[in-house]
């Protein structure tokens, strides 16, 4: 734990298995950051393994999903419910690599009416977007996104969401945000087998019962009555 000469994120990666909280303290991340708070109260962290995200990207993704889904009385943080893992797996797989995406050129600038027109695969789009977002927060706050305070993260993400953050990569910050939010919400509410929605926490939060979803009688017996059942996932039926 004394190899402070290592680039910060390589060090974090190595130290992650031992103690995320200790690592955060050792590298001077503000003690009030949500990640540090959660880590202090959570059970020992599992080793962080990324299929495709590099350390900078992983730190960004964790910080953003913790801002989108902060730990509160309803759920643990985005990272703790598996959203960073979910995003990493999605970007590493078929979706991230542009499966079923028409990728022939020419790549002409489209209007919003045209939908996605970039030459980038989703993986490369997220790579570019993360890089642009970090460049913008560095210009604005002097730091990359994951090193901002909670207040700054909320402020920065709002600027990115509303297109006020200047991106130079051929797409707007709000376009990047929309795609990031969509992927995060997919992870939050998808079946837990994909890595997000750990312990069916999002389903419990809203009262979605999951499987088996056979309601031929219940549609009548629970008419105007809350169907309050412990959710079940695909794994519970496998």
């Amino acid at each position: 734990m004394t190899e402070v000469k290592l680039p910060r994120r390589d060090f974090l990666k190595a130290a992650g298995a031992a103690s995320a909280a200790g690592a955060a303290a050792a590298t001077g991340i503000a003690a009030c950051s949500p990640a540090a708070e959660t880590a202090a109260t959570a059970p020992p962290a599992e080793p962080e393994i990324w299929l495709t995200l590099n350390a900078t990207e992983a730190a960004f993704v964790k910080a953003v999903v913790d801002t989108l889904i902060p730990a509160d009385e309803l759920t643990p943080s985005g990272t703790d419910v598996g959203l960073a893992t979910f995003i990493d797996r999605q970007l590493a797989g078929g979706f991230g690599n542009g499966a079923k995406l028409y990728r022939s050129g020419p790549f002409l600038p489209g209007k919003p009416e045209h939908g996605y027109q970039l030459a980038l695969s989703p993986r490369d789009f997220f790579r570019a977007g993360i890089s642009e977002a970090n460049a913008w927060t560095t210009k604005t706050y002097g730091k990359e996104f994951d090193r901002l305070t909670v207040e700054q993260r909320n402020e920065a993400l709002t600027a990115i969401e509303t297109g006020k953050a200047q991106f130079n990569g051929g797409f707007t910050s709000n376009f990047f945000f929309d795609n990031f939010l969509q992927l995060s919400m997919e992870g939050f509410f998808a079946d837990p087998m994909y890595g997000g929605n750990k312990n069916k926490v999002a389903w419990k939060m809203i009262g979605f019962p999951g499987l088996p979803a056979s309601y031929r009688e219940e549609v009548k017996t629970y008419f105007n009555k809350k169907y309050d059942k412990e959710p079940q996932s695909i794994a519970d039926f496998s």
Binding site: E186, F189, A190, D191, Y194, G210, L211, P212, A213, I234, D236, F237, S238
Partner: peptide, 9 residues
């Protein structure tokens, strides 16, 4: 078939 068909993602 159940359970794989109940996969919204």
């Amino acid at each position: 078939v159940l359970p794989r068909i109940r996969d919204e993602l």
